[in-house]
Amino acid sequence: MPLPAATTLPSDVTQLRVGLGDRSYDIVIGPGLLAQAGARIAALRPGARVGIVTDRNVAERHLSTVEESLRAAGLVPTPVIVEPGEKSKSFAVLEQVLDGLLAARIERRDLVLALGGGVVGDLAGFAAAALRRGVDFVQVPTSLLAQVDSSVGGKTGINSRHGKNLIGAFHQPILVLADTGVLDTLPLREFRSGYAEVAKYGLIDNAPFFTWLERKWQDVFGGGPARIEAIATSCASKAAVVSRDEKETGDRALLNLGHTFGHALEAGAGFSQRLLHGEAVAIGMAQAFRFSAAQGLCAATDAERVAAHLKAVGLPTRIADIPGELPDTDGLMDLIAQDKKVSRGALTFILARGIGQSFIARDVDPAAVRSFLEAERAGGAHP
């Protein structure tokens, strides 16, 4: 299917533009971009010091390639390495990162480079927003989830014991380099987790894309042109929304399809390997469609179709798929009430009238949500 708002370069690299006036930036998608990072960044900030924030796992695979590329372009890299996993999105690790960047003498005309998945991108971006009251940063996402979602749009932050991503800032990158080649080394579970965010773009407002994914998902997993097409289509969708609504005062909230339920489940699982972010989003999207069907908003067959596709790729779709104990219904409702989309206590969900027909539902009845969660925990008396 065609890639909206995309430019295909002779080198088989696809480039998109996030239009935000004087803060606009490019998303570059394709293989081999880690080795080109230095030249591309030096074109924007020649001679800069670069604080590379990454995690231990990514550093072992990719840090040397990026450092060599930066040095070859006349830039001065200093790595700041954190532990992998959601628990690094914390005050303690944020302090560690800021201390490392200050020790590297990163100044206002230098920049921070986020090399890793969504955790590293959120953490490094927030550190860049806070450091010296704001320095530029570049996103180099190494997971599918980060390439199609969290690296684009400027949302940065850390978690709190009260919930996920409740502390942060909008801070746009100056460049996103999505090297599709690094996905070949990604564990299957991590790739599946990222795929949930790809499917999300079809479910929000692009039913033909969802249909294409139903036919082509195995090719996306396999790599090659289908993978690049899926990533570029996802990024183009997000870039268009961010250009219209940078700070989520309007339809950018649609990008949170599945996240209100999903974030509550993720927090309930202790932000642990029991439930990856994309797995939580997959369950949350399936729940959003089941809840919509239970409210008479969409057909039960739509909810069944969503769940069937997510199951086909190996993603969870129900609370029962999460290993270990979770909070009871009251506990999950408390976590939902901490969601960023809650306004003056009123519950806001992204619901659907069908596949590709999501909408923002404000003032959702908490009693209806509670009843739905009770049914979900009991095994589900709905699609």
Rank of each mutant, 00 (worst) to 15 (best):
A308H: 13
Q139T: 09
P323Y: 13
D205S: 12
S11H: 03
A104P: 07
E86W: 02
F209V: 08
G117V: 00
A129Q: 01
L332H: 05
A128N: 03
A196G: 14
R290Q: 05
P31H: 13
V53P: 05
E95P: 00
L123A: 05
S64H: 05
L373W: 07
G154H: 15
K87I: 06
A269K: 08
A337G: 12
L111T: 11
A37C: 05
N57K: 00
G345I: 05
D184L: 12
R17N: 06
Q172T: 12
F91S: 00
G296A: 11
E266C: 08
A288V: 03
T54P: 03
V76S: 15
D110A: 03
Y25I: 09
V82H: 09
G38F: 03
S371C: 12
D149V: 11
T348A: 08
R370T: 01
P31L: 08
E107P: 12
D365S: 04
A232W: 05
A375F: 12
Q139G: 07
D321S: 06
D302A: 15
D334V: 13
P84H: 09
S193Y: 01
A199L: 15
R56D: 08
R244Y: 12
T54Q: 03
F289P: 09
A103E: 15
E246A: 11
F359D: 06
E304N: 11
S234N: 10
V369K: 11
A72W: 15
V152I: 12
A37K: 01
C235V: 14
E374G: 09
G47M: 02
V50G: 06
I81E: 08
A346V: 01
R370N: 10
N165F: 14
A307D: 10
G222N: 04
S234M: 07
V148E: 06
A346H: 11
A303S: 07
G154N: 11
H162D: 06
A130Q: 02
E279Y: 07
P366A: 09
L265C: 11
G117K: 02
W217T: 02
F191G: 02
V76N: 15
V80L: 15
V18W: 15
R105Q: 12
Q273T: 13
G181N: 13
A378I: 04
V198D: 13
F221V: 09
A199C: 14
T329N: 05
L177A: 10
H382S: 06
D219F: 08
A269T: 06
L131P: 01
V120E: 04
G51H: 13
V135W: 00
P225I: 15
N57R: 04
L310W: 14
P383S: 01
V369Q: 12
E197L: 07
A43P: 02
D136W: 00
V138W: 00
K89R: 08
F191T: 01
I158P: 04
L257K: 12
R215K: 14
I41Q: 09
N256I: 10
I41F: 02
L102I: 08
T156A: 13
L34G: 01
S243E: 10
R377C: 04
R17Y: 10
V119R: 09
A367G: 13
G258M: 08
